[in-house]
Computed example of a mutant assay.
Amino acid sequence: MANILMTRIDNRLVHGQVGVTWVNYLGANLIVVANDEVSTDEVRQNLMDMVVPDVIGTRYFSIQKTIDVIHMAADDQLIFVVCDTPQDVLRLVEGGVPIKKVNIGNMHFSEGKEQISSTVSVDEDDRKTFKRLHELGVELEIRRVPDEKIEVDILKFI
């Protein structure tokens, strides 16, 4: 079974908080960015790789490829999965990826979304998706950085 330490939802995908702070806190040695667009965008991949220490591996897979290959991870790979949206996480979980905990770090505000914390805004589809993840036994938390207290009880909003 893949050693997935945590999965994070962050519209920015990999940046300083993810590539350094969370990786160090979790003890991860591999970041898997599960995102259909970034999986084929070498420029964005290279930009994200710039903030990740050289000793940490990065992989940029589509959602389907992540589902197909995650079970082939080596025992010594300590994996931090990063996704753009809760819908992507749900696709992974329904595809058999053993995700137990999701950290919701950043979901930008846009038209039709309600801001539920300083960095997280949701619409009705997001609420339904979080509810489904919760029903599937996935632990959900909103937290920007590891040493921050959980800001909002997401379950109040689903």
Rank of each mutant, 00 (worst) to 15 (best):
M1R: 09
M1S: 14
M1K: 09
A2L: 08
I4W: 09
M6N: 11
T7R: 05
T7C: 15
R8Y: 09
R12Q: 13
L13K: 01
L13S: 06
V14T: 08
V14E: 00
H15T: 10
G16C: 12
Q17L: 10
G19F: 00
W22E: 11
V23T: 14
N24C: 03
N24S: 15
L30I: 08
V32I: 15
V33W: 00
N35C: 00
D36A: 08
E37N: 04
V38Q: 00
T40I: 00
T40M: 02
R44D: 02
Q45N: 05
L47N: 02
D49V: 04
D49F: 01
M50R: 10
V52P: 06
P53F: 03
D54G: 11
D54E: 13
D54S: 14
I56G: 06
G57I: 00
G57R: 11
T58A: 04
T58M: 15
S62E: 06
Q64K: 14
T66K: 01
I67W: 05
D68T: 02
V69S: 00
V69Q: 04
M72A: 09
A73G: 10
A74E: 08
D75E: 15
D75F: 05
L78A: 10
I79Y: 03
I79V: 14
V81E: 00
V81R: 00
C83D: 05
C83K: 05
C83E: 05
D84V: 02
R91W: 07
R91T: 06
L92S: 00
V93A: 10
E94W: 03
G95V: 00
V97N: 06
V97D: 06
P98Y: 06
I99D: 02
I99S: 01
K100W: 01
K100A: 15
G105P: 07
H108Y: 13
S110Y: 14
E111S: 14
G112A: 13
G112F: 07
I116E: 06
S117N: 08
S118W: 05
S118M: 09
V122R: 01
D123I: 06
D123K: 07
E124P: 04
D126W: 08
R127V: 07
F130S: 06
L133S: 04
H134K: 14
H134D: 14
E135M: 12
L136V: 12
L136F: 12
V138R: 13
E139D: 14
E139V: 12
L140P: 01
L140I: 11
P146H: 11
V152S: 07
D153A: 10
I154G: 08
I154M: 12
L155F: 13
K156S: 15
K156L: 15
